[in-house]
Design a protein around this nucleic acid. Structure first.
Length: 732
DNA sequence: AGGTATTTAGTTTTT
DNA sequence: CTAAATACCT
């Protein structure tokens, strides 16, 4: 015990030693001799190692440029708008390019809409225009990134049309949601089982965890057996990027190399498991739907005749299979309109191909292309800065956005000492902005990754500034909600072994071994569960209770909300023993019940939760002061896509943090980071502030060089400040 | 043997 | 903070 104490003490001392050395090193390098105030020095762009392009990438770049010129060639063709019979005054509300997109009436159309150019508005007007032209609303399909986005567009279209047409019948949602809807509706026609359940990423992890444990994989070369979450990520990435598991591992997870074969095996078993247990994950939904459309002519004709007009938003984020789906959905009539911006493609890690945009003319040779470059969001000063980011893109389709909005300041870049200083300054600035009468909801702080928001969160709690975190743990990903949902899933599909595993292990006297014994018995009986088979065990009475609960949950005559409340009664004592903070979790259970009160069937309820989970947790209100409804938004850049704020702060602009260290070696990944930077900066309407502390330490590495993205921009486009720390540094 | 408590190591981005 | 490994109970 004494040894241990000394050991940790030594570790502590060692760590402090390291820190001192580190501070000394960076103060040498980075602290200017003159203190505080406005400076004009950032490292030059040549101080960063740029990744080299390999042969394949070189070829790709040439191809890319060819695509770009094809695109430009198509742009020549501008249609003559036909505005007869229109009650809505489109000319009044739209600029020339927007009007052309809205009134396009000769087949496929690609709209390249830069950031803040009124893309959503164009889609709304387009929809309204189609309806005014006599197209029945139910023939229009609106594919967007989230269902919320679809809902918003449909609502705005309704306002536009007022009484002249009904938008209630427009179908809209994500690719996944649409695939799910079609598969269930036409399950009989295409010959699949309608009663599948959808696995979200956590569910997949649970299943993979089960499979892995059953395989009894032994440790190799001292490295621990990979976590189920990592295995799940690898498998899913291989699929959505259409590459082999080995390639994913070599590229991104080289420390998993010894387990390559095991993971491949798990992947195979996982696939079989999903089939035999009537389950589909996100990738399956798209793949099965695509396959059905491709091979089943009757089904394809049916779908094509229902949805004759397809509008796709955020086209740059579609992956390979979604791109192909668009082709099939367009059908013979090819009344398809794709809207996107290749400069804002930030989902390559999950298979998105921004080339989909550039290949559009190859898929639809007779298509029209319209480029919208008038920006209505950001001030001129901000736009000048973001235009420069586009210029520095290697794989970038050229566009120059222009804005007529006058601004009063150039973007600012500010350096701080500690992350705490950065957080503190941002909060002070936010307080100033609020005092000038700006609502907090017009302010956002953005980060490359979630963990970077910790200091700001702490500071805001301290200063009692109300805030909302976007992209945090999802409501449905919280443990107790997962547990509740597991009961409901079993009620629907009693073959769901992962859900069984989850709930059985909540019971006392049941651990890994007995849980799998029970599950095995259930599976052998084809999913029927009878507690009597386990009368010899100490836990049989518990199983009896469970049996009663499940039959209640299956009772379709009882409203879903009431069933969930029954479940809550059952689950509450279990939660008490498993969660130390169970009191604070109780409100979540009621939230779930409320969600279940929308009148949907259990099946629809579960699908909706898996495909379109409610945003972050419902704890927002807790942070706010009494009666205060306005919140500052703290968000990852990914979650901020499509949104805008008057004042935007982007924190932690350090090379290695943003751009992420892992992407520094590969030019394509670095380009993705750059597009993220572009997305982040273009969220700002009036004020853009980029900040960084002098270092950030994460695991054993530290980063202390300003982000290269800051250095790449022209110095006359922003102002640079160094904020000195008031107190002396206590380590020196 | 099997369940439960404690330590310990590892962390991007998400439909 | 969370999942896996280990240690320690019944």
């Amino acid at each position: 015990m004494d040894d241990k104490e000394i050991g940790t003490e030594e570790q502590q001392r060692y760590r402090e030693q390291q820190q001192k050395q580190f501070y000394a090193s960076f103060i040498d390098r980075n602290t200017p001799s003159h203190a505080g105030g406005e400076q004009a020095s950032l490292p030059g762009p040549d101080q960063y190692d740029r990744p080299k392009m390999n042969a394949a990438q070189q070829v790709f770049l040439e191809q890319f440029q060819q695509y770009c010129s094809t695109l430009d060639a198509h742009i020549e063709r501008m249609p003559q708008p036909d505005l007869s019979n229109c009650k809505v005054d489109y000319v009044q509300m739209l600029n020339r390019e927007q009007l052309a997109a809205v009134t396009w009436n000769t087949g496929p159309l690609l709209v390249i809409a830069g950031a803040g150019t009124g893309k959503t508005w164009v889609i709304c007007c387009r929809t309204a225009y189609l309806i005014e032209q006599g197209i029945p609303p139910e023939q229009i399909l609106l594919l967007t990134f989230t269902r919320k986005a679809a809902r918003e567009m449909i609502d705005r279209t309704a306002v536009l049309l007022q009484s002249s047409g009904s938008t209630a019948d427009i179908h809209g949602g994500t690719f996944h949601g649409f695939a799910n809807h079609m598969l269930r509706r036409y399950a009989d026609l295409i010959g699949i089982d309608r009663n599948y359940t959808i696995l979200d990423s956590i569910d997949s992890q649970d299943v993979i965890s089960l499979i892995r444990d059953e395989m009894k994989i032994t440790r190799k070369k001292g490295s621990p057996v990979p976590k189920s979450s990592v295995i799940s990520t690898v498998i899913s990435r291989a699929r959505s990027c259409d590459i082999t598991i080995k390639e994913v591992i070599l590229k991104e997870y080289d420390y998993l190399e010894p387990y390559c074969e095991d993971i491949r095996m798990i992947s195979t078993i996982f696939r079989e498991y999903k089939q035999s247990h009537r389950q589909m994950d996100y990738d399956d939904l798209l793949e099965v739907f695509y396959h059905a459309l491709k091979t089943h002519g009757q089904f394809r004709k049916k779908v094509n005749s229902i949805y004759r007009y397809i509008i796709i938003d955020e086209f740059q984020d579609t992956n390979l299979i979604q791109g192909k789906l668009v082709e099939l959905l367009a059908g013979e009539e090819k009344q398809v309109m794709a809207v996107g911006d290749d400069a804002q493609s930030i989902y390559a890690f999950r298979g998105a191909r921004h080339e989909n945009i550039l290949r559009f003319p190859a898929v639809f040779p007779e298509c029209g292309i319209i480029k919208i470059q008038q920006n209505y969001r950001s001030s001129r000063e901000i736009l000048a800065y973001t235009n420069r980011i586009i210029e520095s893109m290697v794989f970038g389709y050229r566009k120059i956005l222009s804005s007529e909005i006058p601004g009063d300041q150039k973007p600012e870049v500010r350096r701080f000492f500690y992350q705490q200083d950065e957080a503190s300054w941002i909060c002070s600035r936010i307080e100033q902005i609020r005092e000038k009468g700006t609502e907090l909801s017009r302010i956002a702080v953005l980060f490359r990754s979630q963990y970077l928001s910790n200091y700001i969160q702490a500071e805001m709690l301290k200063r009692r500034i109300p805030f909302t975190v976007y992209g945090g743990l999802k409501f449905v990903e919280r443990r107790h909600i997962k547990d509740m949902l597991a009961y409901l899933r079993i009620a629907l599909n009693s073959l769901d072994a992962a859900a069984w595993n989850r709930i059985l292990r909540l019971l006392p006297d049941i651990g890994t071994v007995r849980a799998s014994l029970v599950i095995q018995t259930i599976m052998q009986n084809g999913g029927t569960f009878s507690s009597s088979s386990f009368s010899g065990y100490s836990f049989s009475s518990r199983l009896k209770e469970l049996e009663v609960l499940l039959s209640t949950l299956r009772n379709d005559t009882m409203p879903l909300q009431d069933r969930i409340l029954k479940l809550k009664q059952y689950y509450l004592p279990l939660m008490k023993t498993h969660c130390s903070d169970y009191l604070s979790r109780i409100p979540d259970l009621d939230v779930l019940a409320v969600l279940g009160g929308s009148g949907d069937s259990l099946e629809v309820f579960l699908s909706d939760l898996a495909l379109d989970p409610p945003g972050s947790t419902f704890q927002e209100a807790e942070y706010g002061e009494e009666g205060q409804k306005e919140h500052v938004v703290l968000s990852t850049i990914h979650s901020a896509k499509g949104l805008e704020w008057d004042h935007v702060f982007i924190a932690a602009m350090l090379d290695g943090v943003f751009p992420d260290a892992r992407s520094l070696l590969n030019i394509e990944e670095l380009e993705e980071e750059r597009r993220m930077f572009y997305v982040a900066c273009t969220r700002a309407k009036r004020e853009l502030v980029l900040t960084f502390p002098s270092y950030i330490q994460s695991y054993s590495r530290y980063f202390s060089l300003p982000s290269r993205f800051l250095s790449e921009n022209r110095k006359d486009l922003f102002r640079f400040f160094i904020e000195e720390r008031e107190q002396k540094i206590h380590y020196l």
